[in-house]
């Protein structure tokens, strides 16, 4: 694609220079560390003392060992990833409008589709970095806490499931980009992301049979985090998720190419 490297260079520079980039990484690291700390409390319930809330949260982890810890990590990336990647997408696309710089990108010898593609590549790379930061922080804290039940095979399997969960969630960022572009800002898409997160939880709890057809619930089915009693995600879930992602991408490109940019 024409000028994609230049667009990619520009988009990555904008991302790297923003405070949002550093803050998001620090936040994901913090969550990883906190997960490890919570596991430590689960292992040593006397630390929670009389704090019923902390004790309840720690006990919800179940047994403080690596299998439970990895399961928690996968659940966390499904929820936190949806939110975090969604916010990153909202910012990458919406800031062009909020900072009123979009017009600099509209009458250039670069196809607008190349700029959109570069933005998606940056969103994906940024999201991968966040996912790795969370995993690494949690892993290191888990080591320090001294969880039992470690094995390389378990860690490899957990990392594979974690990665697939993260990547499937990243694929679902394209509709968020469309909402950010169409609403010309980042507030509405962030609201959209939160709404999706709530609906996903409701579908999972109240209408588990529909999870296969609700794109944002499908990563949970793939990861197994939704429970083994639920339907297998293949192939319908894959098609639904893939279609959602492709349609979101095409809608975003179409918006940039054809909508009035006032």
């Amino acid at each position: 694609m024409n000028n994609l490297p230049a667009a990619l260079w520009s988009e990555s520079l904008k991302a790297r220079r923003s405070k949002v980039f550093l803050v998001s990484i620090l936040f994901f690291l913090f969550v990883g560390v906190m997960m490890g700390m919570l596991t430590f409390v689960a292992k040593h319930p006397e630390i929670a003392g009389r704090s019923a809330t902390m004790g309840a949260k720690a006990s919800a982890l179940g047994k403080a060992d690596w299998p439970n810890f990895f399961a928690l990590l996968i659940q966390t990336i499904l929820a936190l990833g949806s939110l975090g990647y969604g916010i990153v997408t909202s910012w990458v696309f919406g800031r062009e409008y909020s900072d009123r710089v979009i017009k600099d990108l509209l009458a250039l010898p670069v196809p607008r589709s190349a700029i959109v593609a570069a933005k998606f590549i940056v969103v994906a790379a940024w999201s991968v970095i966040l996912s790795l930061a969370l995993f690494a922080a949690a892993l290191i804290t888990g080591w320090f806490v001294g969880l039992s039940g470690w094995s390389i095979e378990l860690a490899q399997q957990a990392f594979l499931t974690y990665s697939v969960s993260a990547l499937l969630t990243i694929l679902l960022c394209t509709p968020v980009a469309f909402v950010a572009s169409a609403s010309r800002g980042y507030l509405l898409p962030i609201g959209f992301v939160i709404l999706l997160l709530i609906i996903t939880q409701l579908v999972g709890m109240a209408l588990p049979g529909l999870m296969l057809y609700f794109p944002w619930a499908i990563p949970a089915l793939y990861s197994g985090a939704a429970g083994s009693a639920l339907p297998s995600p293949e192939p319908v879930g894959g098609i639904v998720l893939g279609l959602t992602s492709v349609l979101g991408y095409l809608a975003t490109v179409a918006w940039w190419d054809h909508a009035d940019q006032v």
Partner: peptide
């Protein structure tokens, strides 16, 4: 067009370097 906003986190040089690259 209108008030010429630029990327606030980027320096003057970086804003121009970006346009240089995008204009090949």
């Amino acid at each position: 067009v209108e008030i010429p906003y630029s990327y606030p986190d980027l320096t003057v040089r970086e804003n121009l370097e970006m346009i240089r690259r995008l204009r090949s």
